[in-house]
Design a protein around this nucleic acid. Structure first.
Lengths: 209, 209
DNA sequence: GAAATGTTGTACTGGCAGTACAACATAGGA
DNA sequence: TCCTATGTTGTACTGCCAGTACAACATTTC
């Protein structure tokens, strides 16, 4: 069932926009057949129905993200620099595949209930962050935080939600610029924070105007 | 249609767990009827079918969040302090209503396609953040960032995703402790950032060990 | 050239959302 | 008290659509 011929695979992407727009429920198998040009019987021959279509499309997206992020993360730089690269990589892929991203978010519930996808989601999005955070503490480029798990989850949320919003509202014309803009904003946020440079209780002053 | 009698409303909450568990699609109207004790015909008398049930439940949750956050934000403190309060308020409500949160995330696509809910989502989650960020710049408690819209979106994502994860995995026994833990982690992240205190290019050193 | 594998049209089945409606309950104003 | 509004509920029905069955046809492979 993972042997889908390349031609069919490429045609199937034609269903992404449909699903993104109306959700999987709002999309009839016959619509998918018509939009992709693949006859209904053929879809059922290769895939496990509607869910199978979604699983195929999203599986592809997640593999892509996991791959790009993986590359970004395997350099010799310090963890902080690699975190920046990972953010850029994730946003880059998301912005380049707005329909798939919208389909993913729209049918998140279903996706997480599709066994393979739940794990793929985790390994594409959350795990790399978690790893970088702990490596950053080791190499001194990132701060030690009180609750690494919770922080990793938040960072993951910051990146992913920003990516989704970029994918949804993105000016399809200049995708890479959008990605760069969001990427910079997120790094600014998660690396330097939003507080003006005074400590929590105003005990010390870090910088002087 | 917004006049649902209190008794029915309270019974309806019995459907939240069901929907959270299986998604709205995996949940038959007859299941909802049985779980809540409200006969199918009565559900249809008051609500617009399945989507109506979801809209009612989520509408309630979003009102609740918007309300609590609204209170947290209307003090005389500086924006930074109110941001911390807002984070705590949002997480508090989410952790207290894990089933509703899970239903929300599971059927996000549907939710955003339900006209009223899309706006309610925005005003419960995103808008308060955006406002606080700009007020923080005005009162000097938060930094000016290059792209406030993108940053607000990321902050919103950080809070919301962390909240969802807390709601999903939360040790239902000690909800408020979970909320406090996540709240601290998020504030640490979005206020102070993750970078060790050196500037981007190592030109200056903010603090001395 | 024959067997295996893939492709596709057509026709059918079963499940479930939503509807129709009649019978019954309750409230509250005259 | 009786009469009318409004709400409540059981039952039976309709229509849509996912998924299946299967036979006919095509392509590959050896």
């Amino acid at each position: 069932m993972r042997k889908l011929p390349a031609k069919l695979a490429s045609q199937l992407y034609g269903a992404a926009e449909l699903i993104a727009e109306r959700g999987l429920d709002g999309t009839k198998i016959d619509d998918i057949a018509e939009a992709t040009g693949i006859p209904k019987a053929t879809i059922y021959y290769h895939l496990d129905g509607k869910n199978g279509v979604l699983a195929f499309l999203l599986g592809d997206l997640l593999d892509l993200i996991a791959g790009e992020v993986g590359v970004a993360v395997s350099t010799e730089e310090d963890a902080r620099t690699r975190l920046e690269a990972a953010v850029a990589a994730q946003l880059g892929v998301m912005v380049e595949h707005p329909f798939l991203c919208r389909a993913l978010v729209g049918d998140l519930g279903r996706a997480t209930r599709l066994p393979d996808l739940a794990e793929a989601l985790r390994s594409a999005f959350y795990q790399p962050i978690e790893k970088l955070l702990s490596e950053g503490v080791a190499d001194g480029s990132l701060r030690q935080v009180a609750d690494p798990g919770a922080v990793a989850m938040s960072v993951f949320g910051a990146i992913t939600v920003a990516g989704l919003s970029a994918a949804v509202e993105g000016s399809s014309t200049e995708a890479s610029a959008d990605a760069a803009r969001f990427s910079a904003a997120i790094c600014e946020l998660i690396l330097d924070g939003l507080a003006t440079r005074r400590t929590r209780d105003d005990h010390e002053s870090g910088e002087r105007p």
